[in-house]
Structures are given as C-alpha cells and as structure tokens.
Design a protein around this nucleic acid. Structure first.
Lengths: 124, 124, 124, 124
DNA sequence: GTGGTCTAGACCACC
DNA sequence: GTGGTCTAGACCACC
C-alpha cells in the first residue's frame, strides 16, 4: 500500500498513518495476515522519524488492527476488517457532521451547504 | 453578540473567538462601527484569561476585521463584512473539501458520500 | 491655525498637537502673544477628548512655548519662536536620522536611499 | 544571524524581531529552508521571555515568512525572499514618506530637506 | 475606563 | 528536544 503524508495540515503524522492503515484494511487493500512495512523501512521511505511510525503502529495494535508476530513483524489481524470498516464509517460521518454543524451555526442554509457539497465533490 | 467557547474540542480558544467574530460580521450580527466587548469584560463573562481575548482581538486586527480606537476600544472596520463573508466561505469550503477528499481516498463512492451528507444534515 | 489629526498612525494625539503648535510657532504662523484656541473649543472642533487637548497644552507650557494669562487663556510666549525653530530642526533631523539609520542597517545602499528619497519627495 | 534588541526605543521587542528576521531574509542572510534559532535558545541569548519570541515567530508565520516543522523547529519558507524584500522596501519607504511629509508640513522646503538628508547620511 | 506589551511559569502534542 | 496555548499578574500610554 502507498502512504501519503501531509505535514502541513495540522493532523499529526502518526494519526495520518493510523487512519490510512485503518482505511486500507476497511477497503481490503490490506488483508488479514498481510505484513505492514517495518518501522525502519517506512521511516526511510517516508523520511519520517521512526518514533512517529512506532507510535502509529502501537496505536494500531491497541486498536486491534495489527498484531505482532514475534520476530517477524506486524500483520493485519484476522478480525480487523469489519472493525476498520465501522471505524472508517464512524470517523468520516463524525467529521462530516462536525463540519456541517459548524457551517449551520455560521449561518449557512441547508441549501447553501448542499450547493457547496456538490461544488467541492466535483472538484475532487 | 453571544460567544460560546468549547475548551475540550482542541480548537484554541483565541481561534474560536476569531471565528465567531468573523462569522458574526459575515452574517451582519456585528456591523461596521459597532464596538466589540472590551477585553476585560469578555474575559470575565467567558471566564477566560484577558491575554487570550487580547490575542484573538489582535489577530482580528491583523485580519483587518477590527480596528482600535486608542483608549476607547475596538470596533468593526467599515469594509469588514465582505472580507468576513469571503473568509467564512473559504474556511467552511476548505473544511468540507478536506473531509470529502479523505472520504474518497478512504474508498467511499460519491454516492455513498451524498447519502452520508443527507443523513447528517437531517440529524442537525 | 489649522490642526490635522491622524488617529491611525500610532502617534499619540496630544503629541501631534504639541508638534503642530511648535511647528506653527517656528514658521511664524503663530506669533508671540497670540492666543491658541481654548481646550473646550479645540476639543469640539477636533472631536477629541478635552483631557487630550489639556495634556498637550500642559506639555507646551512646560516646553515654554505657551504661557497662561490668568483668566484669559493660553498665549505664545515672547521668546518661543527660536526655541520652536530649534526644536523643529532637532525633531525632524532626528527622525530622518533614525529612518536612514534603520534603512542602512537593513542593507540598503546610500544610492538606493537617495533614490527612495527623491521618489518619495516627488510624491508629496 | 545576529539580533540586536533595543528595549528603550518604544518599538515592541517582538516587532523588532519580526523586522530583523524579515530584513535578514530580504538580504539573503537567512535563506529558504534555513532554521531560525529555537524559541528557547533565542530567549536565553537575548534574555527575553520565551513568550515574546514565540509571538514574533507566530507573526512571521502568518506573514508567510517562516513555517513550522512540527516538533523540529521553524524554517524560512521557500518563497519568502521576494515577500520580505517587498516588505522591507514598503516599510522603509513608508517611514521615509512619513518623515518627509511631516517636515514639509512643518514648513521646510524641498531644498532644506535635501540638505538635511545629505547631512544625516554623511554622519551615519 | 481602554488596549498593548511583557514576564513567569505551566502543560500539551509532537519528533 | 521543538513550538503552541493558556493563565496570572504587572505596567504602560492613552482617553
């Protein structure tokens, strides 16, 4: 799988990695038993501090997405896919809800929002 | 105008104040020449340190939304409304874009997104 | 004499009044024995707080430019003109020196400065 | 780069730092990608409170002169040099304009000003 | 009364 | 280690 890190959007790097792995499992890009790149390897390909990678992998383990196979590395857990799918849905719905809520509080109408939605989605 | 501060959502307090003033000017709740509450007054009503209020007002001045009448207080600048409206639009569109972009990268379809959008907007 | 107050250039209002009176005496626009407008009158014509005017006049008295004639008001002192002329020269030379010094420290050459000088003086 | 702070000239300390960094980038003394001293380090070498340094660096970020590499420090932005050069030019021209304007209003002739200019520039 | 600046010191996330 | 935010409290010029 490919990672894309944006160091300037305020989202912590380790969080971006956690999400991208979670989403990849949800989509089936990463499947049960598949290994993820080693801390060292990912650290050099992304030019990111190894501690940051390690922290992301640590959280993915406590999220029960990855597990450590002694001496071999980290792999996707057998039961991770549905959990990741649920997590993906929840994370995205929540972020969407929060943006919409702020926009409504800022005085935009539902119609203006729908317009903005269509406009943004066409630009992507 | 009324302010509502949420100290637990990660958004800096001064930033929340900046946004709320900007949005209020965009909506016409605050109009040109109108004074904003004094640093000390807002500080006591919100139970927030005066420095934090001052920082928000400082940024609103460099954003050209407020201007200082020395020794008297801060007022909304004559030409602030369109600037604030544009800022509001830009901030919200950007946040929406970022959510949608992440959702698409996470594998959701445009149709799924549209569904999620309608669902979230009805719950608000 | 006419006063012009700029409330947005950072120079305190009372200071602007002090300087304008001083310069007017230096130029001969105000002459010895001539009365200056009363605090109350100047306050209303300039729409400025009377305390601010009073403060300016206080300083002009301690600068020995004005003197108070009991019950009649403030007039230009007999010996004020040369003092004001010297003050004007000193104030302006000092401000010029300070700008030039900063520009040189900022890396501009004498030639660039001379250019800038001619350009600015033509625009005035 | 070296900083020199004058705490007695009325110009706020953070503003002096902002200007010195801006001018250094304009001159090429600081180049794109180069790190500026850390808040704590500059704070101790200048014997200035870290908050004051942070405030200057904050403004330099909103001026798009510096950018933050989270957890690592602050560097000069890729496109900062022309912006800084323009800012330097604008700041100095404006200060010069303001001095000349005041001098003309004070009754000096263009010729007297030119004389004063040459005199001051030789003494520096 | 008003805002503006500064110090001191704490706590935080991130690398 | 890095910057970012916030509190507490002081002092200032100005109105």
């Amino acid at each position: 799988m490919r990672f894309s890190i944006d160091t300037s959007n305020g989202v912590p790097i380790y969080e971006q990695i956690v999400r991208q792995v979670t989403f990849a499992v949800a989509e089936g890009v990463l499947v049960s038993g598949q290994m993820v790149p080693s801390v060292r390897q990912l650290s050099t390909t992304l030019a990111i501090n190894p501690n940051t990678i390690a922290r992301a992998y640590q959280q993915l383990q406590s999220d029960q997405v990855l597990e450590s196979l002694r001496g071999r590395g980290l792999v996707v857990r057998a039961d991770a896919a549905p959990r990741c799918d649920a997590a993906r849905q929840a994370i995205l719905a929540d972020r969407l809800r929060s943006v919409l809520s702020e926009a409504l509080h800022a005085g935009l109408s539902t119609e203006q929002l729908r317009e903005m939605f269509e406009q943004q989605i066409q630009n992507l």
